[in-house]
Design a protein around this nucleic acid. Structure first.
Lengths: 111, 111
DNA sequence: TTTACTGGTATACTCAGTGATACTGGTTAC
DNA sequence: GTAACCAGTATCACTGAGTATACCAGTAAA
């Protein structure tokens, strides 16, 4: 019981650490919704800056959450494709969306 | 489709805002696991400081996530009881625990 | 009487995450 | 020629979430 509680907490904190930060989850969601190009993702998440998006996408590429592909066309075309690993967050994100919908009236957003 | 995507994102960001911060989710989890007293909760979450726990518990009381009760015994006894509202995070937390377990090997914790 | 528990408060600090703004080099459309 | 798109980079500034450490009053056990 006690041991189990500790193990649960560690699993929980691993997850929290991995999706920590303000933008990681919205970006995963955007990719899973079919957005692929930089400006497309940027537009799909109001409030995010190019700087933060760029930074997050780089980290996510390193963490194997997405694959960045540069097509040598003209003009140059870059796509960000979510990996199957990225999609393992589907359940968490869906539950978060469910919660947000159910409690829309309660939460006061910060501007 | 486009409209729907925006609505989803807002629900998602509401949730993220509400459970934002490093300690909120672990505290909810601790309460839901049956921990009730201040030092008990504190011990159940390694790394948290009294200051952060105190701060979070106050906010959570204001947000109706828990009820703080002072029993006028000797020595004084204080309990923190999760509300049904608090328990609505059960699904999200369970999914986070599941994810953490499944990907234990991949994540590198900080410290 | 000294140690350790309870439920916290007080003060000071720090730094990572985020925001704001501007800019680049190339392409296409008007 | 100029305006707007693409995919970003470069600086600078900031702030508040989180850390570290110490402390308090009361109770109780050794």
């Amino acid at each position: 019981m006690e041991r189990n509680q500790t193990e649960e907490l560690m699993a929980l904190q691993d997850t929290l650490y991995f999706i920590g930060g303000k933008w990681r989850v919205p970006i995963i969601n955007s990719l899973c919704n079919g957005n692929r190009r930089f400006r497309e993702i940027e537009r799909s998440i109001p409030g995010i800056t190019t700087r933060m998006l760029s930074k997050e996408l780089k980290e996510m590429e390193m963490n194997k959450l997405l694959v960045r592909t540069v097509y040598d066309e003209t003009p140059v075309l870059v796509t960000y494709e979510p990996t199957p690993y990225c999609r393992t967050f589907g359940n968490i994100i869906q539950e978060m969306i469910n919660w947000g919908r159910a409690h829309r009236k309660v939460v006061l957003r910060h501007a």
